[in-house]
């Protein structure tokens, strides 16, 4: 394949790629992805794993959580970790 044709194909692909990114951005603005940004930050949490709860304690428990150890069911759990 001659180089100019190859170049044209590459420029075409680049334009398609750029257009795709722009379409994605315009779509995101249209569907209000950038409205109410603070709420967006919270979607990784849910009722079982709410804000304020560590979700990985493989090495044990932070002091703040240990103070709750009198709560039902925590005692045994403490001792195993």
């Amino acid at each position: 394949m001659s180089l100019p044709l190859a170049g044209l194909i590459l420029i075409l692909i680049a334009l398609i790629g750029g257009t795709m990114a722009m379409v994605a951005f315009i779509w995101a603005v249209r569907t209000k992805q950038f409205k109410d940004l603070n709420a967006g930050a919270y979607i990784i949490f849910d009722e079982e794993e709410p804000v304020g709860k560590m979700t990985d304690n493989t090495f044990g428990f932070p002091e703040s959580e240990k103070s709750n150890k009198n709560k039902k069911g925590r005692g045994e759990y403490e001792s195993r970790w």
Partner: peptide
């Protein structure tokens, strides 16, 4: 961006900045 807030249990400090970061990165 997922594990730091998820493990700590605290949302990203500035969600606005994170998206600005993504688009300027792109």
């Amino acid at each position: 961006y997922y594990f730091i807030p998820k493990v700590i249990g605290r949302p990203i400090y500035s969600y606005y900045l994170s998206l600005l970061g993504f688009w300027s990165f792109a």
